[in-house]
């Protein structure tokens, strides 16, 4: 088996103020994966990421990045990582291009080679026209993209993004998704934390969930979604319905005269439901999931689902 991009064993962290942020996080991310790290607010995602990038000192456990233990081979481990932190952490009074070029320099890339790289990164993220602007004059979404450009300038093997799409509009978010997919396709391992679960579902093939400082789930996205036995759909009907049509094998509820809610067990196909409805002269115009599937699972796993 090849060396994993990231291996974390029994990671613990108690902050100086006594907060036990991590109580035993285990993670394994293979090279080339697009990995979602999920968890509610305060679960310990940013703390875990901070430790991987040596911004936070761990209390216990082991972290290895591409086989480099962060205690013993810190420089080698750091060289493999590009970090997009949760909070803006660039010099607000520095021009955009300088920020990216300097970051390359910190990784040992001389200015003359850093310039074209910075240009490529800024162009890819649509910030080239803003290159001479002071960072503080960028919009929120542009600042997020600046941090992505900065993280990629030294061509890391692993990109870690801590809520990169927070506060970013839909269009920019979609283009960020496309960009991250491309980056991943070129071989960069990506770890993403986000509270937009449809984003994780759309992008990531593997997923871990952290809650109260512990890993409570670590599996393929597909396998995780398979755990959902019942999905709820919202159906819009052409005919106005006075009462709930009687169907067999499915639970239906009437929301209003043109809207039905249907619980469908995983073993059953929705075709059966449609057949029974058509036979009763009910035509379904459109259908959608009541909630995102991952969201549904997530709420169950972190124990906050509505009964």
């Amino acid at each position: 088996m090849t060396v994993p991009a990231l291996e974390i064993e029994n990671l613990t962290k108690t902050y100086r103020n006594g907060v036990q942020a991590l109580r035993g996080v285990d993670l394994r991310v293979e090279e080339g994966e697009f990995f979602a790290l999920l968890g509610p607010n305060g679960a310990g995602k940013s703390t875990t990421i901070g430790i991987i990038c040596s911004l936070v000192r761990k209390s216990g456990g082991r972290v290895a990045v591409f086989g480099h233990d962060i205690d013993r081979e810190m420089e080698a481990a750091k060289s493999c990582i590009g970090l997009v932190p949760q909070e803006f952490n660039f010099n607000q009074f520095e021009p955009v291009e300088e920020i990216v070029i300097n970051q390359a320099g910190y990784y040992g890339i001389p200015r003359r080679r850093a310039r074209p790289r910075a240009e490529a990164c800024l162009r890819q993220l649509g910030l080239w026209d803003q290159r001479r602007v002071m960072a503080r004059e960028l919009s929120g979404g542009q600042k997020r993209r600046l941090m992505i450009a900065r993280a990629l300038v030294h061509e890391p093997r692993m990109l870690i993004l801590d809520e990169p799409t927070a506060g970013v509009d839909i269009e920019v978010r979609r283009s960020m998704w496309a960009f991250l997919r491309e980056t991943n396709a070129r071989g960069t391992t990506i770890i993403l934390t986000t509270h937009y679960l449809e984003e994780a579902e759309a992008l990531c093939r593997r997923v871990a969930i952290i809650d109260h400082g512990r890993t409570i789930e670590n599996s393929a996205m597909r396998d995780l979604l398979m755990q959902l036995h019942v999905e709820t759909f919202i159906l819009n009907t052409r005919e106005a319905l006075a009462e709930v049509p009687a169907v067999e094998g499915y639970t239906l509820r009437r929301v209003d005269e043109h809207t039905l809610e249907a619980d469908v067990e995983r073993e059953r196909s929705v075709n059966g439901l449609f057949e029974q409805l058509s036979r009763q002269g009910v035509h379904v115009l459109s259908m959608r999931n009541k909630s995102n599937r991952l969201e549904e699972l997530f709420l169950r796993r972190v124990g906050r689902a509505q009964p």
Binding site: M74, K78, P85, E87, F90, N91
Partner: peptide
Amino acid sequence: QRHIEEMLVSP
């Protein structure tokens, strides 16, 4: 401003 982190994450 926390941009010291730019240096701390670097090798």
